[in-house]
Write a protein that binds this DNA or RNA. Sequence first.
DNA 1: ACGCCGGAAGTAAGCGCTTACGGATACTCA
DNA 2: TGAGTATCCGTAAGCGCTTACTTCCGGCGT
Lengths: 388, 388
Amino acid sequence: MDARAGSAATPTIYDVARRAGVSIASVSRVLNGRDNPRPATRDRVLKAISELGFVPDGAARALSSRLKQVVGVVFRRVYGTDDGGMFEDESESLLFGDQINRGIEIVAQRRGYDLLVSSVNIDEHTLPNRIMTIAGKCDGLILHDQVLSPAGIAGIARSVPVVTLAGAGGGTVANVRGDSDTSMREMARHLVQDHGYRRLAFIAGHADSPDTIVRGRSFAGEVHALGGECLTGPAWQGDYSAGSGVQIIRGLIALGATLPRAIACANDQTALGVIYALAEHGLDVPGDVAVTGFDDLPFARHLRPQLTTVRQPIQEIGAKAFEVLHSMITADPTVPTPATPSPTAPTAPTTGVPGGPAADFVLPTKLVRRESCGCPPDTRPSVWRQIS
Amino acid sequence: MDARAGSAATPTIYDVARRAGVSIASVSRVLNGRDNPRPATRDRVLKAISELGFVPDGAARALSSRLKQVVGVVFRRVYGTDDGGMFEDESESLLFGDQINRGIEIVAQRRGYDLLVSSVNIDEHTLPNRIMTIAGKCDGLILHDQVLSPAGIAGIARSVPVVTLAGAGGGTVANVRGDSDTSMREMARHLVQDHGYRRLAFIAGHADSPDTIVRGRSFAGEVHALGGECLTGPAWQGDYSAGSGVQIIRGLIALGATLPRAIACANDQTALGVIYALAEHGLDVPGDVAVTGFDDLPFARHLRPQLTTVRQPIQEIGAKAFEVLHSMITADPTVPTPATPSPTAPTAPTTGVPGGPAADFVLPTKLVRRESCGCPPDTRPSVWRQIS
DNA sequence: ACGCCGGAAGTAAGCGCTTACGGATACTCA
DNA sequence: TGAGTATCCGTAAGCGCTTACTTCCGGCGT
């Protein structure tokens, strides 16, 4: 009456049960560490499991328990501006986004979750489908910056909890980001007041990235407030890649433009490109032009000159994103959140209220002064050169 | 008779069917792009789907179709030797392994598969469980070097197709790796014949990593064959981290040992550490000691001196691993492979025979001569900090 | 006109688990 | 000793899909 007689196929819980002489319920119980089964039974089951090399099927488990223990992470496949070779690997090379993923993974693991990662090419025409497929395979989604339009995000947030990174948040989607505002203002003050630069510029990242918008606005705002001048606009539009930094500087120089005394970049990679292009033309950093970054990626302090930048708690951002998502997942018994986002202050406490309104979590950042802004080089033996 | 009346929960295929006035079978058919449903029907279904924001459940789909369209990737969480700070981020920073994952991901995506990534701490006591859980969530596993003992690998390979990276292969598990032998012999020849070095050394990676074993043996073998001397042994045992390179050199110098004229390292990161430690003691590379790496990670050519190393087709290795795994998955109708591995030549053709014996795929590598071996420098500018 | 045939759509049987329920069994205590 | 109670374990009903099989329907040949 039962075809489950064979032993050829990968073993199922039925095979284990038969072999151990118990019911599938008992097998399931020992599998899940329930304490009902008494030791003797448990041992027989365990024995059968190992003899058969049984591995419980995650799909069946997920279907039955309504929990996949998988979170999806979608990030953008980067194709930065091509500068002709020097940085071609840099763009495919794993930086900011990957560090965040690492942070997510480590925390997720502690909760028994695994990461389903997927990079997307933003102008892929099947994008909606791709994201849908991914959403179907996990309990929740973490979306990096610039992978989906706000409308698209809202759409898929109808069926799966979603946390965005450096996004806008709103609706039922939560958002986690570093505090760009405070630190970029501090950066402006440092450059204008401490170093006395009057003519500065800001190189932006992807045009519609919330982070770059805040960074640029805060920086320029503070510079102006201090009586300085801050160049921005199309000529200063980059895309977060080193290549874009190179192109912008080369373009400006080719046009015979007078460079500003200091250039703040939307991120470290752009700064890397800028410094490279400047060196190419014999310009000294910070002697002729000061340059700063944002993120404080590991390579920032190996650069020459060491890069002044803003440290973001990268892994913490990832960790926070997971925690927020996790609380949405466990608190989600299908009760759609009433919305009404509530921006939270830096070092924001967790939403707390399970199922409560989605929020915007902003983590503190920190200005790291090194050499590229004009500060004196660190003279301590380099081995001890810590992050201060 | 059916409780599926509510509309609060996330919609299922039943909700879509009801709304479109068709059966669930039809919905499923349009979902899977079958051509049966006629346009009119299809449109109604599509409409219902988008109105409901329906996302098919991956677990149910997987359970029913016996295919999850997910491959697991397990890699080791690296905690290299601590050198006191300078390279602390390097180890958590994403290098070789991540590049491979990227390669896997891109190819997997083309086949509709997603990646379930999981890092493991090798001395975690729940490791077997962790891996089992992961295995249960995917159709096949790609195991990076050093994540599981050969016995452990064989065990889980009983229930899921497995491909190892830079492993040993054998049994039913396939293996993919770069050709360390040919290129390390070439490296030895270059160092001994072209540069005339007679006294060299090889710094190994993790003791039981197949790759480092081959690298060391081939290098030393060729050096000896050419009449040179090659130091190896405990004093030259590293762990693939920059920190281990630093410690080894410091140790040697502290002991007052006479350094060899050239040091070949098991990978680029180790070389980075070695160069750093040498500079620390005022030794010039390659003037006093030549140093070489392996992998050709992006940073290798930004080092100063630029690193002579062996280029591995990193992303290709990942891509190949996926392709091999994929063919195992689709050819696996539960028929255990008869074993008998058949080593394949470089640029190995795919196993071909579905369900055929597992194999060892070795991809070609290439010696990249830059400055650290003593060759003349490339003239492009470098903004990367001199390691000193 | 009738029976056939082909394609569209529906019915229902699982896929391999978890778990609510309830039956057995073994203890406890009056 | 018998009822009451705790424990252990088995039965069976899904979870949300895919798909083999069946039904239905309209057009065809003769």
